[in-house]
Each structure stands twice: as C-alpha cells, then as structure tokens.
C-alpha cells in the first residue's frame, strides 16, 4: 500500500519557472522533485515542486534568498 505523507508543494506560473527551480535545486542540493500538480490543487496542467514537510523552512528560505519565483504554496498529504 502506498504510504501518503504530508508534503509541501510549490506551484509556478510557468513551466519554465518550474524547470528553473529544478535546475537550482539540483545545483544546490535542495531536496524535492517536480511532480504533476495534484488535481485537488487545480485541475489544469502543470508541474509543482514537492518536498518533505520537514524541509519547508529550508526551501522557503532558498526561494527568498535566490529570488526564485513561485505562484502558490500548499501543504498536502499525498
């Protein structure tokens, strides 16, 4: 049985912004991954950054420090 966990999700205005986040995270060892945006957030197409809830302060600090744009922030059990 798949285990669901509380995660943080960052959505982006554009796919390009999501890709930039992935590149930055890869270069700087930030935890998380891009996943399709869950339909409970919105039914449209798009990708979002998913990371463990414990990494919330680190991720948000990096987003602010590096001026990485994101559209929405969610905490969700998936």
């Amino acid at each position: 049985m798949r285990r669901k966990e509380l995660c943080i999700l960052l959505t982006f205005s554009t796919t390009t912004e999501a890709m930039a986040m992935e590149a930055h995270a890869s270069a700087h060892g930030l935890p998380g991954r891009l996943i399709p945006v869950p339909t409970v957030i919105h039914a449209g197409c798009g990708v979002c950054w998913k990371a463990p809830i414990a990494e919330k302060p680190r991720i948000l600090a990096a987003m602010e420090k590096e001026q990485l744009p994101y559209e929405g922030f969610f905490e969700l059990v998936i």
Partner: peptide, 17 residues
C-alpha cells in the same frame, strides 16, 4: 526534448500514484 523529459518524469510519477 527538455519538456518531453519533464513530461515523462511526471507521467511515471502519476502512474505510480
């Protein structure tokens, strides 16, 4: 190609869910 790789990653994740 870059977008195609991103989509494939997303497909496999969604499949696993």
């Amino acid at each position: 190609e870059e977008l195609g790789k991103l989509l494939m990653k997303g497909f496999i994740y969604a499949l696993s869910q």
